[in-house]
Computed example of a mutant assay.
Amino acid sequence: MTFGEQPAYLRVAGDLRRKIVDGLLPPHTRLPSQARIREEYGVSDTVALEARKVLMAEGLVEGRSGSGTYVRERPVPRQIFRSGYRPSGGATPYRQEQADAASRGTWESSSEQTEAGGAIAERLGIRTGERVMCTRYVFREGGEAMMLSTSWEPLALTGRTPVMLPEEGPLGGMGVVERMAAIDVVVDNVTEEVGARPGLAEELHALGGVPGHVVLVVQRTFYASGRPVETADVIIPADRYRVAYHLPVK
């Protein structure tokens, strides 16, 4: 193979992809059969099959049992806004940003005490096995799951205080900054690291995705004088949402 030459299956997949993107193969249209691809492009059955696999892995087509492979309807990506901290009467960033965007956001959550695994312990600056409060969220827009979040807070800091349960008690549902301030912990910094990976089966099930879909992962940690006080993983389906940052310029 000379430099720059594509394998046959990628060439076929690329041409079919172009037809899908350009609307020549619109959503819900049946993809040409393996035999048709073989004849049209002059390739083997193996190449035709691998080209179809590429398009399925990219989320452009989907198989329907007993019917064939069809072009998927591609959603128009919507924005999830994230911004620097703004005093807002105690609203969490999600509640604040949903209000700003006039969205129809709802959420549900559950909390439980557990032991910190190695990765979470490192992010919180504690020992592996120390007790943490783990809270899982499902955020919805118009009834559709749009985002998952799992947060961890060290119980050595919040245990036996009014803010031990993030969504319950007198400060339930308020942001990390306000909740920590109630126990004289001043949050002064937050970091967010954004990455992408294939979604886990349970994540895609909750988000309504299909196996192989990519998710954005926002790894967020709040600090008070250099001490991590809360860390979280925010999971967002990459085919449906874009993360938009609005940051102040100082």
Rank of each mutant, 00 (worst) to 15 (best):
E62V: 11
E97C: 03
G59C: 02
V76E: 15
I120W: 02
G105L: 00
L55E: 03
S88E: 06
G129P: 03
M146W: 10
R52M: 06
R86W: 12
R104S: 14
L124F: 02
G63F: 10
T114K: 08
E58V: 03
T135D: 05
W107L: 12
E130W: 06
G118P: 03
E144H: 12
Y85E: 01
A116H: 01
Q79M: 13
A121C: 06
P87K: 11
A101L: 12
S109L: 00
P77C: 00
E73Q: 13
T92A: 02
L55Y: 07
E115Q: 13
E62M: 09
A119V: 13
I120C: 00
R82K: 11
P75A: 00
R95L: 15
T135W: 01
V71T: 05
A91K: 15
P93A: 02
L55Q: 04
I126F: 03
E108K: 11
E141S: 12
G105W: 08
S88W: 06
R123K: 05
A99C: 01
E141W: 11
A57C: 07
G59V: 01
P77M: 05
S67N: 13
F81E: 15
E144P: 02
I120L: 05
S67V: 14
G59R: 02
A145T: 01
A57W: 10
R82Y: 05
R136E: 08
S65L: 14
L148K: 04
G84S: 09
G142M: 02
E112K: 15
P87G: 04
E130M: 10
R78M: 09
L55D: 05
E112T: 14
I126T: 01
K53I: 10
G129E: 03
E115I: 09
Y94K: 13
R104E: 12
R82N: 08
P77T: 00
S67T: 13
T106Y: 07
E122M: 09
A145K: 01
V71S: 06
E141R: 12
E122D: 13
G118W: 09
G125L: 00
S67C: 12
R123M: 04
L55H: 06
G90N: 07
S65C: 10
W107C: 07
K53Y: 08
E97T: 08
Q113N: 14
A116S: 07
G68P: 04
P87H: 09
E73T: 12
Q98S: 13
G143T: 05
M133R: 07
R136D: 05
R123E: 08
A102I: 12
A116Q: 03
L124D: 03
C134W: 11
G59S: 00
